[in-house]
Nucleic acid binder design. Structure first.
Lengths: 270, 270
DNA sequence: AGAATAGTGTCTTTCAGACAATATATG
DNA sequence: CATATATTGTCTGAAAGACACTATTCT
């Protein structure tokens, strides 16, 4: 009988064929009261010239979480932002090169911290406003066919350039739709919105509301929003008053601070 | 300049090292008013003798969804059951053999349809009642360390055999906890519970409530449960009355039918 | 004063939880 | 009738949504 030691020393991982694994990161931010997504234009085959979600191959010495954090650092210079796993896309034919799995991550970045860096291949990067993901098409499985019409994703870039699913590489339209739906769904019972604040230690409730409105794609009642947030967060001691805002037009707002370390993740469930 | 055709024909997928990818399936069922999980005892290294979530390597010609469906068919003889992706576990050291990613799936199977088949390696299989997953530890990221104490997972098998995290292979304790939490979280706003009904075209509201209670691990108020279900499902035409139950003790219950095809999945979001 | 923004209060409806009461079967 | 199960109803308090009102700043 073999011991576990012996077994491990003789194990040959190359006896089976393995798929490639990439990590793709949906980098979201809020700018001009709207939800935006960072895409890069591919300058290589396949899908040369199309827009794509930034990503890269998973290295053998890093977990998917680590790979996602590394790629977002390389792509945007940003560190320590909120990052959560979204879904693993695995259709056999999703990449024409060979079998490629994609573990998709969702990142929330304050706009002020975003720096577009010329990527490795000097890719062109673009921020696109996300409109027209149907509010309720909460019904489909990500990997099943989502009719492009229903839910019609619209992305609006600089100089009002509008792109649609056809201008995206791979199955990235499907991935973007899944991500937007997930964000909307989780907004209400997670701390997702705080990841977009420029300064979580000094923000106004109006700023927080604007983040919520950008994600949901609709206006919220000012009074009801304040009441709800205060009940959920201030009563529990998770946000605190930090004195009045300085400068600006109109009545100065109360500043609040949120302890980023207390961010609830809720990645898998719910 | 190379055409896309040329590029693809010259692409060599073996230029990088690739991780192995497995699909693990958490097969849940409801038996004796309790949530149960199917585990198999490993008869090979590594973790020989420990209990594990059934799974297998992803083949190059199948998606992860297909692999999960295939494995559950092989393991239990069951087809056409509800299956959803849970999370992809990717820690570098989670498998001592080599780098192995696991895409975890969650399956909901009516107890009456479960058939234990002697697996490929004639593994011993066991159904374990799931107790003592802390109701609220909704705070952690699945891949981060979850203190084994908090949430203390307890699995009770045949003849009251109790096993804990130490008796499980790999990081499977973490995966099981993630799955149970996810089920609880999604129970309220998805159709998850219907996947456990022996006959979705003829069930009573009491049967449906027992499924909810098993998943949540606590009793529910009978009247309030009925009211809520009827509002959510009967008003929307998603369940229908199908006449009275026959036989049994006490007042016969109304039978309802649920159209399985209308199952809302909500895999990724929410 | 007027414009702009922040913040409070009130009314109504919806809904969840606790719990009581009624209905219909079997033995 | 007793027992068991199913089904309906009632009361209360919490919370969401619509909307009106007040407060504080700047120009």
């Amino acid at each position: 009988m073999q011991s576990e030691q012996q077994y491990l020393s003789q194990y040959d991982p190359s006896q089976f064929e393995h798929p490639s694994v990439t990590v793709d990161i949906l980098i979201f931010t809020v700018k001009d009261r709207k939800l935006h997504l960072l895409l890069i234009r591919r300058n290589e085959h396949p899908f040369m010239g199309k827009w794509a979600i930034p990503g890269g191959f998973l290295r053998m010495d890093e977990s998917a979480d680590e790979a996602a954090a590394r790629r977002i650092r390389e792509e945007t210079g940003v560190e320590n932002i909120h990052l959560e796993q979204l879904y693993t896309f695995s259709s056999v034919d999703r990449d024409p090169r060979t079998r490629v799995l994609s573990i998709a991550y969702l990142a929330t970045v304050p706009y002020g911290r975003l720096r577009f860096q010329a990527g490795e291949g000097a890719d062109e990067a673009g921020l696109f406003a996300v409109d027209g993901v149907s509010g309720e098409s909460v019904t489909a499985r990500p990997e099943k066919e989502l009719s492009a019409a229903a839910g019609g994703l619209r992305l609006t870039g600089a100089e009002n350039e509008v792109i649609t699913g056809d201008d995206l590489a791979f199955d990235h339209e499907k991935i973007i739709r899944t991500a937007v739906q997930r964000m909307r769904g989780k907004l209400g019972y997670t701390d997702l919105a705080f990841g977009f604040l420029e300064d979580p230690s000094a923000f106004t409730l109006t700023e927080l509301r604007i983040v919520h409105e950008a994600i949901l794609g609709r206006q919220l009642d000012i009074g009801n929003f304040r009441r709800t947030i205060k009940r959920e967060y201030e009563a529990a001691g998770r946000i605190r008053e930090r004195g009045l805002e300085k400068g600006g037009v109109g009545r100065p707002a109360m500043l609040y601070s949120f302890d980023n370390a207390s961010m609830r993740d809720l990645t898998a469930p719910f």
